[in-house]
Amino acid sequence: MSISDISTSIGNIHLSNPLILASGILDENGHTMKRILSEGAAAVVTKSIGMEERNGYKPPIVATDDPIFINAVGLPNPGINDVGEEIKIARESGKPIIGSIFGKDENEFIHLAVKMQEYGVSAVELNLSCPHVKGFGSEIGGDPTLVKKIVKGVKGSISIPAWAKLSPNVTNLLDIAIAASDSDALVLINTVRGMKIDIYSGRPVLSNKVGGLSGSSIKPVGIRCVYEVKSNLDIPVIGVGGIESALDAVEYIMAGATAVQIGTALWKYGRAVFSKVSMELVEFMSSEGYEKIEEFRGIALK
């Protein structure tokens, strides 16, 4: 039997494997993104970039108690005008760079998307779901009218694909997914709002108090969200939330995901997680007799 082919495509973006570095993890410094791509990620999503420079929150920005992982980094970013250099360094890898952006309204998102396109990214990812910064993210991503306007506005202003990253912290995810369905792909899911209190100091650990729960704790939520959206909409979905092994990735793909993003797993496995999961995926596919990812994509939906 021939060796299993783990490549995939999201629209016109070809990926050598289905594993993308999720936004927010090791994607601030161009040299880091370049190294991660050389060590096995098929593409990287940058940290979310806004109009102005932001320092983010003071540490502690993470609260961990394996397998619990909660973060509130607070959207630190150099601002759109100063991120071009990092993207240029990352692009030396020759692999796709996805520019994540956040704004407070349609006009900001359009401005950011146009700039990202100028910097040469392969697609933009609209962060409509950061769970821990007031005025951005979830507060926008929970309003279907605003989501629709932002997606439409961005799509009308750039020629590269636009992906919409949605939050699970909403009453009806499907309403938001429908509102965002003019985009080229949906990225599901961002972190789940959560909190950690240290019982010896009697204080919330994160400086922002509330953060986003990620990692294996949220995988069942992510699977459900992908499944629910793919059961109702014909749009490519990128699955994210708790992927640490190929078995996790396969679950997302069987729920209908075209590709997956990995973030929190770098905490346990380091940058090597990408080559680890790729190898496991080849093993799984050979042992199950799959030659291509398409053969099992979405089979749980039938």
């Binding site: 090791l26 880091t32 540490p59 770098l266 905490w267 380091g270």
Partner: peptide, 20 residues
């Protein structure tokens, strides 16, 4: 350094994370 555990990219040099 912000996270200390190889996640946030604050302390990186040439793609190496100082913390890990």
């Amino acid at each position: 350094m912000k996270c200390g555990i190889g996640i946030c990219d604050s302390c990186s040099i040439d793609g190496f994370q100082l913390c890990t």
